[in-house]
Structures are given as structure tokens and as C-alpha cells.
Design a protein around this nucleic acid. Structure first.
Lengths: 203, 203, 203, 203
DNA sequence: GATGAATGAGAGTTCATTCAT
DNA sequence: GATGAATGAACTCTCATTCAT
């Protein structure tokens, strides 16, 4: 009886499971107002659950944040692998991967905002884990650039590392200025960004 | 003579004034552990002053953060203006400005880290003020790109806005990975970044 | 069984609930030393609870003060209504109500002291709410005086408003001088006050 | 030179001496927002002086408050003495004194508001001193009532003390409701109050 | 599994007062 | 006489987390 009464609370009607609902609400709130400006109370209120329920699924607020990182990292890695392992000339693979990471970033802007703004709020161990995973991601990208350089389709007078960090820097900063209501969509910006990248790599 | 007794406190021996000392210590601590992870108590202890002294000069912790933003914005604007208003062909002016912003960023890495990580901790009014000032900064850069496009030395099939946000995104993210102890210095990275930018703009 | 261990703390042994205990202790302390001279720490120590517990029930110190006002207003209104709506000649109803408000005031002296001394410490909104409710209370009293004036049993050459504010001024000030250990009890003072009021109203 | 520049500060142009300016500003601010809600900084800013200047004339904030009490007490005593020592029948002397205390209270409403709201903020010693002086004031009033009772012009079945505290209670509470912009002036209210007092004393 | 009352350490901020100049 | 930078203790309030139920 009492349970039914509480069902009209925010997000209660959602079909997501409790942990997924918490993850989704946390992503929105952490992006909107920042990790430390979001209290656990606000979080559980917005998710329509109680504190006890949250602490049943996540051992701490930090744990919830880390879960967001894990979800983002998993998705990014999966997508990059798809593009890197596709066939075709390296310049096409790079262009596709470069455009896609922009598109995906724009489609998951909250994740990106949190990713770079709140990394320092994770425990040192988890920060290391995230950085390590990111490095693997970069390596994969760098490998394509070096492959192209060896093949002579890309210039080789600029370290591939520099190219990668420059490109990803730009991508990560989309969260600082991109607004969905603007003129350009994720696909268009992705195309431009990838085009500029390829142009800068011409021998 | 008086006051010498207390001089052995942390940073007391410094020749800086109290507000400057606070600004300098705050920049370091905010960059190291984040704005919200740094308590006012830690701040004043590290600066060798008391809380009361801090609140004598800064009306709030937010105010201290904003003072850092103002200092950064003033410096950035000043430098960009120097390069933009210099003579010579537009591609040379752009290259010099693009390389310099990297070099300056690397030389003031703490400022940059704070700038992009803690913007959301400022009061809404101040966030707007900072964003507005940044926009002016971008405009100046974009103007050079459009000038080059009209002159035919730069391509014109990619919106100058896209080029600017991409480039500055990369620059701002230097704080996420650049470590002074690494192999490349600010000047070298600046040269590479500027070179990639110019290359991407070839018609 | 559990929880018995902590029971020896001040007021813990009391059978009142946490919010009631806080309300009761706050009334005593606010009357004794004033609202602003009473720190939240003193309050919760005296009530045998922790700060967190207090803020679980009252959103601020101001909120606790307002709760006291609400309790007082509710009681005053209830009692006055009983007397006003009783039957009998208007001069008897007025005498009974006038005597009772004195008696009740004396029996709840702490409440009265707080009521008039700390009104300005409430938020402006709440001050207005309290004043509005008080005005309703005065109206009810005034109505009786006007009724008597129309009936010819009271004089009508002095505005009823003046009579009411004069009388309640006197009642409210009981908190400034009345001491329970004095010679006269609440009932006696009430009888004298009411008698003087009725005498002053003779046509 | 610099001194002249600061002359346009608030109240600087006033012809009052520094201590009088402080007293006048403190009276206004303490009445408006309460003693503890008024900081020494606000006080000296509003008076157009510096903290050092204030502490030169008043040894503490409490001292400034006490100076207000002293001024009020001196004035009240002086006026009452004038009326009490005047000639004429006792009922006329009492009526004049009773009307005058209302008039004077209304003309110095800030003083009255402070007097009863902030008494508990004085040091215990000073509270005693103030209460003692007030008692003397009441005695003088009571003496007139007893004189009238002995002379048979006033009733003697109500203790004179009760009459006095009732009347002064009403007077002191003028600060809680009287607003200068209302319909009735101090003289009119004084006449009504005195009339009600005299009426209530009819044998 | 889930609740929410309670904890307690610590946050940012205020402020009357002092004192070297 | 007068200044205002500096003090430092005390303030109200927040919050992630725990635990008896």
C-alpha cells in the first residue's frame, strides 16, 4: 500500500533498474552541477530511491562516480576497436574513427563533461586505472597514424603522440562549448574535425 | 624589526604581499587537489596567514578563485593582442600566436588546469563574465583565420569557428597530460601544434 | 535494550521525542539568554542530541525559532476562540478572555519573552506571517469591544484599536517583570488587569 | 588632502561630533536590525568613521549600547520629574505625565525598541543598573497613584504597582506596532492612553 | 532488501577586538 | 588621535556514511 503511494516519485515510473536509474541520474547531476556540488540526498531524491538503496548497490559516492567512468571507457574502447579493426586504407579508417569519436562524444556530452572535470575526485588508485585505460585508447589511435606514416600517406615529421593528444584534446573539450541547440550536429562537427586532422597529416 | 619573530611560518619569509601570497598558494593547491578539495584552512595555513586575513582581502573562497581567472584572462588577452597586432603576413601572425598560446599555457599549467576544471564552481554571474571574455579572445583568433581565408592563403571550406574551437580545445587540454619533466618543452610543443594547425588550413 | 547505553546523556532520559525535546530546550534557552546568545551547539548539548539530529528535524536555527512561534500562536488562538465564542453578556466574555490571556501568558512566560524579543530575528517572510496571525488575534478582541460599545455597555469615545493595543502591550510586557516567585499569581494579576480594563471602558 | 577626499562619506558632512554621530547611527541601526545583527563594521561605515575612532570613544560594542540606555534613562527621568514636581491636583499631574511618556516614546521610537529588545545583551552589571534606574522611574509614577488613592480621587482596591506595570507595559509596546505614517500622532495616542488610565482609576 | 534517523567531523564565514604604524 | 590589517575563536550549517529496525 505505502509502496504504491510512493510510486509517483520522480523516476519511479522509469523502467530502469535501481542501479541504472542511479547511474543515469548521477550522470545528469554530476554534469550539471559538478560531483561535489551534488549531495547524495539530492541524488537519491532525483532517482526516486532511498539512501539505503543507493548504498546497497554502490559502496560510496566515489564508487558511483567510478561506475560512470567504467561505462564511458567501455563504450569508447568498444567503438574505437570496431573502427580500427575494420578493413580499408588507413586514412579511411582514421577518418572514420576520428569522426566517430566526435559524434559519440557529442551524443554523450554529460559523460565527457564529467570525465575531464571530475577525474581528480576519484581515489588515486582509480585515477590511475582510468588514466591507464585512456592511454591504451590513445595507443590504438596512434598506431593508425604511425601505420599511415610508414605507408607514406601521412607526414612523419611530427610525433604521432603530439597529433593524438592534440586531436583528443579538441574532442574532449567539446563538452566545454558544444550545445545541442546550436547549428551543427555531432556528425557535421565530426566530419570537419576529421577533415582537419587528415589535412594536417598530409605529407 | 617587529614581525621578524613570526617570519618562520610557512611562506612568511616570502616577499609577496598577503593577497599575492594567497593567490599564489591557491593556484598551486587548486591545481593539485581541486578547488573543492582544498579547504580554506589548508589554504591559509599554506600561505602562512590566518583566515581573518584572507577574508580581509577576498570576500569568499569563490572570490579568490575568480581572482585567479581574472589574472589568467588578463595575461592571455594581453599576449594575444601583441601577436595579432604585429605586422607581417597573416600566416606568420597566426603561427606565432598559436605557438605562443601553447608555450604560455605550458608555462602556467596550474592556471590552465584550474581554468577548465573549476569554471562550474564560480557563481553563475562570474561564469558568464569569464565565458564572455573567452569569447572575445576566440574572436580575435578567428579574425586572423578569416583574414587568411579571404586572402586565399587558408582554405575556406571549414568554418573558422570550428578551427578555433578545435585548436583551443587541444591547447586547453595540455593541462590534462603535459608534465614538465617530459621530453618536450613548451616551445617545441607549441611549434608542432602551430605547424599542424597551419597544415590543416592549407587550401 | 539497544540505545540504553547512551541514555545517561542530558535529557536523554526524557520521554519526549527528539524534536519536542529540542523545542522545549530551545524555549528555555532562548528565553534565558536570548536567541542570538544561544549557539546551536549549546542547544543540542542541552537537549542531549547531536547537531545532525537537529538539522534533520529543523532546517535552520531560524526554523526552530519559528516552530516556537507557531506553537504559541496556535495556543493563543485556540484559547481566545473558546472565550470569544462562549455565551453570556459581552462584558463577561471580555473580562474572562482578558483575564485568561494574562494567566496563560504568565504560565508560558518563556514563550512570551521570546515572542516579543526575537521577532526581528525571524526571516522577513516569517515575521509577516506572525504579525498577520497576531492581527487576527487582536481583531477578535476588538470585535468584543465594539460589540459592547454598540450595546452601550462600553464607552465609544476611544477607538477600540487603542484599547486593544494598550491592553495587549501590558500583557506582553509581563515577561519583562513578572517573576513566578513574586507575591501575585497569574490568576490574580489576570483578575486585576481585566478589572482595570473593564473599568476603563465604563461609559 | 586625503582627509578632505573622504569627507563625502556618509554622515561625514554631519555637524555632530564623532561620538554623537556613532550614537545616532547606532540607535537607528540597532532598532532597525537588532543589536547583534549590526556589525561594528556596518556601524562605523554608516557613521563615516573608522573602527579605531569608534574604539577610541567607546570601549566596546556593549559600551555603545549602554550609552544609548543612559541617554534614554536620563531623558525619561528628567521629563517625569518635571511633571511630577509640577503643581496642581494629582489627577492632572498624573494625566499629564502619562500622556507625556507616550508622546515622548513615540518621538523616540528607536530608543524604546532597543530598550526592551536588547536589555539582555548588556553585561549583567549594566542590566542591573538599568533595571534599578527604571524602578526609580516607576516608583515616582506609583507615588502619584498612591497619593491620589489616599486623597480619594483614585480607587484603592488595585495595587498601585499593578496599575503602573500595566500602564508602562502598554507604553513600552508602542515600539512593536506604532508607525509614524499611521493616522494617530503621539499626542493623540498619549491623550487616549492617559484617559483610559484615569478612567480605570475612578473610585 | 530497504529504510531514514542519527552521527560527527569539518566546511565556509563572521566578527569584536587589538595593535603597529 | 586615528588607521585598518590582522587575529582567532566561535558561528551556522552540510554531508557521506552507518545501523537498528
Amino acid at each position: 500500500m505505502t509502496g504504491t503511494a510512493g510510486q509517483d516519485r520522480a523516476e519511479r515510473r522509469s523502467s530502469l533498474s535501481v542501479p541504472d536509474r542511479l547511474l543515469s541520474v548521477a550522470t545528469r547531476l554530476f554534469a550539471e552541477r559538478g560531483f561535489e556540488r551534488t549531495s547524495v540526498q539530492e541524488l537519491v531524491d532525483a532517482a526516486g530511491v532511498t539512501k539505503g538503496a543507493m548504498y546497497h548497490y554502490f559502496s560510496s559516492k566515489d564508487d558511483l562516480l567510478y561506475a560512470i567512468y567504467q561505462r564511458v571507457l567501455a563504450m569508447q574502447t568498444r567503438r574505437l576497436n570496431e573502427f580500427a579493426q575494420a578493413g580499408g586504407p588507413v586514412e579511411e579508417r582514421l577518418r572514420a574513427a576520428a569522426a566517430d569519436v566526435v559524434h559519440t562524444t557529442v551524443d554523450n556530452l554529460d559523460d565527457t563533461v564529467i570525465f575531464f572535470r571530475s577525474l581528480h575526485m576519484l581515489s588515486p588508485d582509480r585515477q590511475s586505472a582510468v588514466r591507464k585505460e585512456r592511454r591504451r585508447y590513445h595507443e590504438c589511435f596512434r598506431a593508425m597514424i604511425e601505420e599511415g606514416a610508414r605507408a607514406g600517406v601521412f607526414r612523419s615529421d611530427v610525433p604521432a603522440d603530439i597529433v593524438v593528444t592534440q586531436y583528443f584534446g579538441a574532442v574532449h573539450h567539446l563538452g566545454m562549448w558544444y550545445r545541442p541547440e546550436g547549428q551543427l550536429g555531432g556528425a557535421e562537427i565530426g566530419a570537419y574535425y576529421a577533415d582537419l586532422l587528415l589535412a594536417s597529416l598530409r605529407p
